[in-house]
Design a protein around this nucleic acid. Structure first.
Length: 302
DNA sequence: GAGCCGTGGGG
DNA sequence: TCCCCAAGGCT
């Protein structure tokens, strides 16, 4: 196991990407912002938004002083705008409860909105050098192959994966700390979900999946419906709202939505009917989707 | 615990 | 073209 530790950690030191949130001296806030943006969004799309975000709001209190609408608009097209809402709310908590300093313990981090098991462990490790057990989708996949002999991990994380992740960590503190980011990077660059670059893998000789003859995945991906769903229309709604500095008039909103090809949806759900006449399902859609804008002060006139 | 929450690029 | 996938979190 020590040989695997050394090979992967050494590989990282020679092949890691030069990402701005990894540079020496970056703040806990800088790391935290990157972790929020990287939740289900690829690095290349996060990079420019992160740069602008950190330039505009270099400290939690800078973001906390702004209305939510500014955070949502600055979030742009990263997707899952709820993350921007949670980051804004977290910035307020950090400002009021922690005097503007991103907390360092996993327990404190875990209590912040938008911070789950992974993000708490990642911030504590990457920003504060703590020895934590980081388990993300990359690490899960590397472990599943290297130690489990499987093509892919289970669709949903299991408790046994956290136990194994802790088990396979190096003993020594700094090595364990480096191990987290090294395995993650290996999964992102070499041990990828599709077409892994096994010929460039530093631990090819140790890989249980290779030894097993690279068996195929034992399950088929589910896939999420998109076309024709409320979710698709909600995305269109947010795009319209982001594009306006001021609250959007109902007529403008409906016209823009129709121009984006959702005229049938407007008719089907009576979006152009008075608020009181809307069906309960529509009210649910609006409260779910437009809550983002409502709370931000960019709203439809009632 | 399964399903939902946006968006765009690569295979 | 279509569909999988991306440093998850929340209910």
């Amino acid at each position: 196991m020590q040989e695997i530790h050394q090979q992967i950690n050494h590989w990282y030191q020679r092949n890691a990407r030069d990402l701005p949130w990894r540079r020496p001296g970056v703040s806990g806030w800088a790391v935290m912002v990157s972790e929020f943006m990287l939740q289900q969004t690829p690095v290349v799309r996060v990079l420019p938004v992160w740069e602008q975000w950190m330039h505009r709001w270099p400290r939690p209190q800078d973001l906390a002083a702004e209305p939510l609408s500014e955070a949502l608009k600055a979030w742009g097209r990263l997707g899952y705008p709820r993350r921007a809402m949670r980051l804004h709310a977290a910035a307020i908590e950090i400002t009021t409860q922690y005097n503007g300093e991103v907390p360092e313990t996993e327990q404190q981090l875990r209590a912040l909105p938008g911070v789950g098991e992974y993000t708490a462990a990642a911030i504590a490790c990457f920003a504060y050098g703590q020895r934590t057990v980081v388990v993300d989708t990359n690490i899960r996949r590397v472990h599943a192959r290297l130690f489990g002999g499987m093509a892919l991990p289970e669709p949903n994380p299991r408790a046994s994966e956290f136990a194994r992740a802790k088990q396979v960590q190096p003993e020594e503190h700094s090595s364990a700390n480096l191990w987290n980011i090294s395995v993650m990077e290996l999964g992102a660059l070499i041990c990828t979900a599709r077409s892994p670059k096994c010929d460039a893998c530093p631990v090819y000789e140790h890989c249980a999946w290779i030894k097993a003859g690279q068996p195929a995945p034992h399950y088929a991906p589910k896939g999420q419906a998109w076309k024709g769903t409320d979710r698709q229309v909600r995305g269109a709604m947010m795009a319209i709202l982001r594009a306006h500095e001021e609250p959007v008039l109902r007529e403008t909103f409906l016209t823009d939505l129709a121009l984006q090809g959702h005229g049938d949806y407007i008719a089907l759900h009576k979006l152009d009917a008075p608020l009181e006449q809307r069906e309960r399902a529509l009210a649910g859609l609006l409260s779910d989707g437009l809550a983002l804008a409502e709370e931000a002060g960019i709203r439809l006139p009632s």
